[in-house]
Amino acid sequence: MTPPVVSIVAKSGTGKTTLLEKLIAELKMRGYRVGAVKHDAHSFSIDHEGKDSWRLTQAGADTTLITSPAKVAMVKQNPVGQEPSLAETVNSYCGDLDIVLTEGFKRSRMPKIEVHRLERSATLMCRGEEHDPTLIAVASDQPRQLDVPVFHIDDAAGLCDLIVARFLS
């Protein structure tokens, strides 16, 4: 897939978003164009009820774009029960990027970095009851002996070195 995708996975409240913020900042500092995709298992809305774009979507528009000099936002209606795969989403919307980092998508076949905090769980999602072969690293607040590299949860530079070596070199 172009660009490469790395998924940041963890149990809720572990620090996925915080780590993603650090990884994005570090990759941007190194000159890369970075995309971020957040998976939401529930329905969400970026439109606000009563606004023109919301009204157009409510009227039946399958795709509504909102543009300004600073950014573009899109509301694209998926057919009922047909969420596009991560690969389809990345291929459709992220072709101009060097890498895409995702939050969630724990069941995808994309390479994963698991965030782990002992206070949240003693076991890992990807090395617990199931062995996920797509796990490439763990960011933890505790030292761990694993079959993949383990980084301190705050070592965004080290994780970026791994990402660059594996996917951007």
Rank of each mutant, 00 (worst) to 15 (best):
88 E>A: 15
60 G>M: 10
49 E>V: 15
40 D>T: 10
46 I>A: 08
86 L>H: 00
60 G>H: 09
43 S>Y: 12
38 K>S: 05
65 L>T: 12
76 K>M: 11
64 T>L: 09
36 A>N: 02
75 V>M: 05
31 G>T: 05
89 T>H: 05
36 A>K: 00
56 L>Y: 14
80 V>K: 14
36 A>C: 13
52 D>P: 06
42 H>Y: 13
71 K>P: 02
69 P>V: 07
29 M>L: 13
37 V>K: 01
76 K>D: 00
60 G>D: 11
50 G>P: 06
64 T>M: 04
61 A>E: 03
45 S>I: 09
70 A>E: 15
78 N>Y: 08
90 V>W: 00
91 N>V: 09
62 D>V: 11
92 S>I: 05
41 A>H: 13
79 P>N: 07
71 K>I: 00
87 A>E: 15
56 L>C: 06
82 Q>K: 14
33 R>H: 12
62 D>I: 09
75 V>A: 09
79 P>I: 04
49 E>I: 11
44 F>H: 05
47 D>S: 05
52 D>C: 08
83 E>D: 12
39 H>I: 06
85 S>I: 12
61 A>F: 00
55 R>I: 04
71 K>Q: 14
86 L>S: 00
82 Q>L: 09
69 P>W: 07
54 W>A: 07
46 I>Q: 12
77 Q>I: 08
51 K>A: 03
55 R>W: 01
72 V>K: 03
30 R>L: 03
43 S>C: 04
56 L>S: 03
34 V>I: 08
60 G>E: 08
83 E>I: 11
72 V>D: 07
41 A>S: 11
83 E>G: 06
81 G>H: 09
83 E>N: 12
82 Q>C: 11
44 F>C: 07
52 D>V: 09
65 L>F: 14
67 T>S: 15
56 L>I: 11
77 Q>W: 06
63 T>Y: 05
70 A>C: 04
81 G>T: 08
62 D>A: 13
28 K>P: 06
81 G>Y: 10
74 M>L: 15
53 S>G: 02
28 K>L: 14
43 S>D: 15
29 M>Q: 15
76 K>A: 08
71 K>F: 05
39 H>F: 04
78 N>R: 06
73 A>W: 01
79 P>H: 11
33 R>Y: 01
35 G>F: 00
61 A>K: 03
31 G>E: 02
47 D>T: 00
30 R>F: 01
83 E>Y: 11
63 T>S: 13
